[in-house]
Structure formats: C-alpha cells, structure tokens
Simulated assay, not measured.
Amino acid sequence: MNNYQSIFSEGFNLKYCVKGQGKPILVVGSSVYYPRLFSENLYKHFQFIFLDHRGFVKPPRSLKKEDYTLDKIVEDIETARQLLKLEDFIILGHSGHAFMALAYAEKYPQYVQKVILLNSAPTNSQERQQQSFSFFNETASAERTKQFEHDITFLENDIHNDPERRFVHMCIRMGAHSFYDYTFDAAYMWDGVYTNMEVIDYLWGVAFAERNLIRSMAHIDKPIFVGLGRYDYLVAPVSLWNIIDYENVKKVIFEKSGHNPMFEEPDIFDREIINWINE
C-alpha cells in the first residue's frame, strides 16, 4: 500500500508517493499508475517520487485552457520540488510525460542532475502518429495484427459506456501496440487512475504535437538517457531517434519490450539505469 501525500498548486490536489531510498528520481505522471511499473529492486537503489500532474487529478473548478498548458505543468513540478526540498535530482518522464520532464529540465536546469526519457517519439504530431500506425501495419506479425484487430473492436463500446476514461480504455485496447507480449492485459494497471480528458486531450493533442524532443535536447547540457522498446508500436519506429548525435545522450533499445521496458524487462532495465546513473 502506497502512502500518499498532497501538494496543492492553484487548487489542484497533486498527490505523490515516495518509494525507496537513495538518490531522488522524480517521476512525472500518475502517482497511482507509475509505481506499478518499476521493480522493487530499483527502490533499493534510489528514492522514487511519483507525482501526479493535472491530467490525473479531479479539477478544483471549471477549467480554462490556461489552466493546463505545458508551462503550468512545469510550474507544478517546480512547486513540488520546492516543497520536497529537492536541490539535485533526476527527472524521469515516460511516454507523453517525457515532454514534461524535458521542458522542466530546460527551464530549471540548476536543480536537475540527469534526465530519463522513456518510450516517447520525438514529437506527437498527427503526422508522426500516422507514421507509427503505418509502421505497425507494415511490420507487425500476423498474430499481433490479429490480436489488435480483435481487441480494438471493444474500444467504441468501452468509450460509450465510460467516456471520461477514454484515455485509459484506449491504452488497454492498444495492448498489441504496447507490449512485447501482445496478449498481455494491462487493465489492472489502470485501476483507480483518474483521468481528466480535457487536460489530456490538450497536452497530448496540441502541446506535445508542437514540440520536438530532439530539438529541445540541443538546449540541455545534462546527461540524458533515452530508453526505447523495440516492439513499442505506439511511438514507433525506434529509428525516429537515429538522428541524435549529442554527446550527453545515451540511447538504449530494449529488444524484448514494447511501451514499458521497466515492467517487461526489469532486470536489463534496472542494470542499464543503475549503471548510467552511477557513471
């Protein structure tokens, strides 16, 4: 059972939980979802702080667009940093949260020791999303494709019955795009995870489509770890990252992982992260 505490920022109740001990790693995302993905072994080496952002908490009021800009998310992270008294920490962002983590490191580099970006494409533009779908259609095995075609037929009904959890239903039904084991059912991972679709739609659909992580890296001189899954069709192909030529960036491809190598290949993932952090 995780012990949750709260940080209030402009009325938003951002919960966080702390697991492990050692050098602090701040994980931006859902404080409910993300602790389920990392191994207990990692918590013996580092102190993980799992922090909500505004897309994963109930809104304190009727929201305006300016309530959920990427800048607001960055300032929430800074508010949390101050309250938690973090002066020299590692920031980690997975999937869309990579954009948040890198945006924070760009604005507040004085507090960031290293940056971990996992399973993101350089941009979330419509063009790139279509490129990922095309890659799946062209390269996925017949069995994987059949599993996807079966699972996705349930999505419309899921959303009709529970529209506020559209993001969650999509993540679950896209399992054949998300996991090396394309039959894996990730539904339990999302138990108890609240989603605010107004916030998520803007961040994933607009804010992350306008940004490019590789371009942003040019402004950051901190060590950056980019972790990718060979079978992560959500942000495929891994070759999107081939143009990286920054000396401060280490790229690792996990060969038997999809979107969650920390969960799918924990031993290899842990070893890579521990060695890189301790370099």
Rank of each mutant, 00 (worst) to 15 (best):
224 I>V: 11
110 Q>V: 13
16 Y>R: 11
145 T>N: 12
219 H>R: 05
238 V>R: 03
242 N>F: 07
100 M>V: 11
126 Q>H: 07
168 V>P: 06
275 N>M: 09
163 P>Y: 14
51 L>T: 15
185 D>I: 10
89 F>N: 15
141 S>N: 02
209 A>Y: 09
272 E>P: 03
118 L>Q: 15
243 I>H: 10
173 R>A: 04
275 N>G: 03
159 I>H: 01
137 N>L: 15
64 K>D: 15
51 L>E: 13
213 L>M: 02
98 A>G: 03
81 R>D: 00
209 A>W: 04
235 V>G: 00
176 A>F: 10
276 W>G: 06
190 W>I: 01
239 S>V: 13
195 T>G: 14
58 K>L: 11
271 R>I: 12
206 V>L: 08
124 N>E: 15
205 G>N: 01
73 I>Y: 14
48 F>L: 14
177 H>Y: 12
44 K>F: 09
213 L>T: 02
74 V>C: 04
205 G>H: 01
147 Q>K: 13
162 D>R: 08
94 H>M: 15
131 Q>C: 10
231 Y>F: 09
234 L>T: 05
65 K>Y: 10
190 W>Y: 05
260 N>G: 13
200 I>P: 04
14 L>P: 12
237 P>C: 02
177 H>I: 09
161 N>E: 13
249 V>A: 03
25 I>V: 07
97 H>S: 06
128 R>T: 15
229 G>A: 09
142 A>C: 13
198 E>H: 03
259 H>C: 06
16 Y>T: 10
46 F>V: 00
94 H>V: 14
102 L>Y: 14
34 Y>P: 07
53 H>E: 11
84 L>R: 03
209 A>R: 15
232 D>C: 01
84 L>F: 05
243 I>Q: 06
112 V>C: 02
77 I>K: 03
243 I>G: 05
195 T>V: 12
48 F>D: 04
165 R>G: 07
192 G>N: 03
173 R>P: 09
77 I>E: 00
187 A>N: 13
223 P>C: 02
140 A>L: 00
225 F>W: 02
2 N>C: 11
166 R>W: 07
141 S>G: 14
83 L>N: 14
169 H>K: 07
204 W>Q: 15
143 E>W: 03
157 N>R: 04
191 D>E: 06
36 R>L: 00
277 I>Y: 12
96 G>Y: 11
253 I>Q: 00
107 K>H: 07
56 F>G: 00
3 N>G: 04
96 G>T: 08
16 Y>K: 12
95 S>V: 01
182 Y>K: 08
237 P>G: 01
160 H>I: 07
103 A>E: 02
219 H>N: 11
123 T>W: 05
224 I>G: 02
112 V>F: 05
